[in-house]
């Protein structure tokens, strides 16, 4: 069986705050799954439940088909990076990886391999307290890779990385998925996930709003809208509205047209003699799609949410 994370019907309250309200999704192997949602959507709580750190009031989380607590040598099943700053400052990166290795019955050779893989190099022998956030992220990724796990779960791994580091991390995550591993990555920067994730689990208020591929999400958000640039804005609006289009002004000389395909817009404007500079089918960025989705979370919650298969 291929390794996955299966989260089904998680509920959790902290006092009067509902942190998780029926969170359900499955992370597939061989893909990078983006885990996105506004702050307080329950992403970190879900990750803590998956790792057995927090106990849900209801629901189950399975890693590689088992509850986390049942895993023998858990780091060989799942590698996780929750908080890159969670280090004792007086210990070197290498020694941090060493105690983790010892906890799994692994040897120092594996430690040196992941130090190399994460590009820590000679800095690994320095005290972790002096590390930049980017270095800590690399150390956290090294720790996650220690057990060569089929599943990886990273909370905001791009945080604090310099541009070079982001390119590296992106390529690294892609290569992990290409090797057949299941990779779950949370991020608040959708633009990063646009180039990294294959699949998206969008959350809001403790539950899944959308569980879809990146391509589908963008297509859905883009709709049939056409972007039009013209100096004769009001003239164009009249012509297109008469033809049944819904027209909105987006800029001083830019219109967004709905309900009419691009070719029909060109024909209409040409026939009416309205000058225009550009007509293009609108392609939403992931950021826009995400904004549209989370802006009206209620509407999307009414749609069927993909349940985890038992």
């Amino acid at each position: 069986m291929e390794a996955t994370i299966e989260v089904a019907g998680l509920h959790k309250r902290f006092g009067s705050t509902v942190a998780l309200d029926g969170m359900s999704f499955v992370v597939q192997p061989g893909k990078v799954t983006g885990f996105v949602g506004p702050n307080g959507a329950g992403k970190s709580t879900t990750m803590r439940v998956i790792l057995g750190l927090d106990t849900p009031d209801q629901g189950t989380a399975l890693v590689d088909g088992q509850p986390y607590a049942k895993l023998r040598r858990p780091l060989s099943h799942i590698g996780a990076l929750l908080d890159a700053g969670a280090l004792q400052p007086g210990r070197s990166a290498r020694n941090h990886l060493l105690w983790l290795a010892h906890s799994q019955g692994m040897t120092v050779q594996r430690v040196d391999e992941v130090i190399e893989q994460a590009g820590l190099g000679t800095a690994a022998r320095r005290k972790a307290g002096g590390y930049s956030l980017g270095m800590r992220q690399r150390l956290g990724i090294a720790a996650a890779m220690l057990g060569d796990p089929p599943i990886l779960m990273l909370d905001e791994p791009f945080n604090g990385l310099d541009p070079e580091g982001i390119v590296w991390a992106r390529a690294f995550l892609r290569s992990l998925a290409a090797q057949g591993r299941a990779v779950l990555v949370s991020s608040h920067l959708m633009s990063e996930l646009q180039d990294t994730a294959d699949h998206l689990v969008v959350t809001g208020r403790g539950r899944v709003i959308a569980d879809t591929s990146v391509a589908e999400l963008i297509a859905a958000a883009s709709g049939d809208r056409v972007t039009l640039r013209t100096r004769e804005r009001s003239q164009a609006m009249t012509v297109l509205a008469q033809a049944g289009g819904t027209v909105a002004t987006t800029d001083r000389d830019t219109l967004s047209v709905g309900g009419l395909p691009a070719e029909r817009v060109v024909t209409l404007l040409t026939e009416a003699g309205v000058p225009f500079a550009e007509v293009s089918a609108h392609r939403a960025s992931l950021e826009e799609a995400y904004m549209e989705m989370t802006r009206d979370a209620v509407e999307f919650r009414a749609q069927p949410v993909q349940e985890a298969t038992p």
Binding site: R48, A69, L82, A86, L100, S103
Partner: peptide, 14 residues
């Protein structure tokens, strides 16, 4: 205080 306890319990759930 550092949050490392989570890493500890992730590596050693018992």
């Amino acid at each position: 205080s550092t949050g490392m306890i989570r890493t500890t319990f992730t590596a050693m759930p018992r």
